Measured scan of single mutants.
Amino acid sequence: MPGGGPEMDDYMETLKDEEDALWENVECNRHMLSRYINPAKLTPYLRQCKVIDEQDEDEVLNAPMLPSKINRAGRLLDILHTKGQRGYVVFLESLEFYYPELYKLVTGKEPTRRFSTIVVEEGHEGLTHFLMNEVIKLQQQMKAKDLQRCELLARLRQLEDEKKQMTLTRVELLTFQERYYKMKEERDSYNDELVKVKDDNYNLAMRYAQLSEEKNMAVMRSRDLQLEIDQLKHRLNKMEEECKLERNQSLKLKNDIENRPKKEQVLELERENEMLKTKNQELQSIIQAGKRSLPDSDKAILDILEHDRKEALEDRQELVNRIYNLQEEARQAEELRDKYLEEKEDLELKCSTLGKDCEMYKHRMNTVMLQLEEVERERDQAFHSRDEAQTQYSQCLIEKDKYRKQIRELEEKNDEMRIEMVRREACIVNLESKLRRLSKDSNNLDQSLPRNLPVTIISQDFGDASPRTNGQEADDSSTSEESPEDSKYFLPYHPPQRRMNLKGIQLQRAKS
């Protein structure tokens, strides 16, 4: 015994090295194993092979420090690593049964499904019991997946119906949107047309105001020219009257000059006056001389005659003075006559000038009245044309509004008919989907599995289990394997941990 101590140590070291070499393959693929292994699927088989106990299973599945599946799978690998070579062998058998691809990844061999460990530990009855539990578990999982698949199909059909409904609603909204954009385009076109009409109206108003201003300026210029013409006519008439007055005065002077006595007659009258003065002096001298030589009687007679002569001279002087006064009065009367005649001529000139001015103003008033009548006639014609244009424009607008209203009513009726057609199509689609759903539900009910399987069917299934373990590994792997896509769409199922009653199965096998 003492001599065998070193050999035992060498043997233990060799086993430990082999164990480390075995687990080295697992550690190399630890990331892939932790990512894809579900500990809840492996722990029943590991407990059946007595590699882990209930406490280890509870620690792996329910520990609060292991929230994710990767953490739980890593903890399970750590626990199996502590179990040595047996933990490695049982772990590979569980991978061979549940995850053939991972088994091939770790060992590089094809899975054979021999279950040597569980046969050694529990015997064939334990293997049968384990396989029966796994089959029931798989059936329950398949039923749950079928239910989930039916629910998802129903949800899918519902979503398809909602999608069709949303599509129809979208078509309806597109119809309304198209109608909205069309009405918006019509409104924009009408606004552009309105702005264009306003611009045209403004341009016409500006043109009309400009023409009116030009016409008023032309009328004012015409009036100024007419006033200048009238003033020139007035000056012409005044000059004609002055010329006529000057002509009359010149004719009067000419007549006075023609009626003036001649120079010879004046000289002859002056000679006669001198001769008479000479004779008068001679007679006076004779009379003076006679007075001195005459007697007293003759002197008395001469005195009487002288007195008579003096009286006659006085009378004559009075007559001469009277004649002079009369001549002066006649001259003054002639001057007054000439003055009055001049005033008369001036008044006649003024009267004729005023008459011509009156005629001029009368003509001017007639011209202004004619212009006013023409302006009123043009204004009435413009008003009439404007009223006709406004009436025609309003009539066109009324007809346009009428046609637009008819078009809008027809478009609304068309839209309502399209919407009604879309709604009826939606109703038809809904009815078809309901009919299809009812038909599929009836087919699913016919094809669904019963909840409680008979014992004979279970025994028959387990009677055929042994050949399947040898020759149909691919079928078992397809039913027991969970793909990543299934984990996305289906909830994980945790079967209840219970042991099955095998009395009925044993009785059935005894009868057979």
Rank of each mutant, 00 (worst) to 15 (best):
L77K: 03
G87S: 03
E57C: 05
G126Q: 15
E110A: 04
A73L: 02
V51Y: 07
T112H: 15
M65R: 07
N71P: 03
E134K: 13
L33H: 01
A21H: 03
Q140N: 11
N71W: 02
G84M: 01
L46W: 08
E125A: 08
A40F: 07
E125M: 12
Y11N: 08
T43I: 08
L127D: 03
P64K: 03
N29P: 02
G5S: 11
R30C: 00
A21E: 09
M65Q: 00
Y88T: 04
S116E: 08
R86T: 14
K83R: 11
D78C: 05
Y88Q: 12
E101D: 03
Q55D: 12
C49G: 11
P44A: 06
N25S: 11
L102M: 01
R75N: 05
R47W: 05
Q139A: 15
P64D: 00
S34F: 04
E93K: 14
V89C: 09
L127G: 12
E19V: 14
Q48L: 08
D10G: 13
M65E: 03
F91D: 00
I37F: 04
H81N: 06
N38R: 03
L92A: 05
L22W: 07
R75A: 06
T43E: 04
V135G: 10
V119I: 02
L42F: 06
N133L: 14
A40D: 07
V51I: 12
P67F: 05
G123C: 15
Q85S: 12
E54I: 10
L138G: 12
Y103L: 10
Q140R: 11
V26M: 03
G87R: 01
A63H: 15
L127S: 13
T14W: 14
G108L: 00
P64M: 13
G5R: 13
I79M: 09
I70Y: 08
M132T: 01
R86C: 11
K69D: 02
G87Q: 00
E96V: 06
K16H: 15
A144F: 10
P67T: 13
V89S: 09
L80V: 06
D10P: 14
K83H: 06
H129G: 10
N25G: 07
A63E: 01
W23F: 01
V106M: 05
P67L: 11
E57S: 04
M8Q: 10
A73K: 01
Q141R: 12
R30F: 01
L42Y: 01
E54T: 11
E122K: 09
L46R: 08
V119T: 15
P64C: 14
T128L: 15
L131M: 05
D58G: 09
D10M: 13
G84Q: 09
I37D: 04
K41Q: 05
K145L: 11
E18Q: 09
P6R: 12
T43H: 09
Y88I: 03
Q141A: 11
L80P: 01
I52W: 08
F130G: 14
E27S: 00
D17V: 12
V60D: 06
T128Y: 15
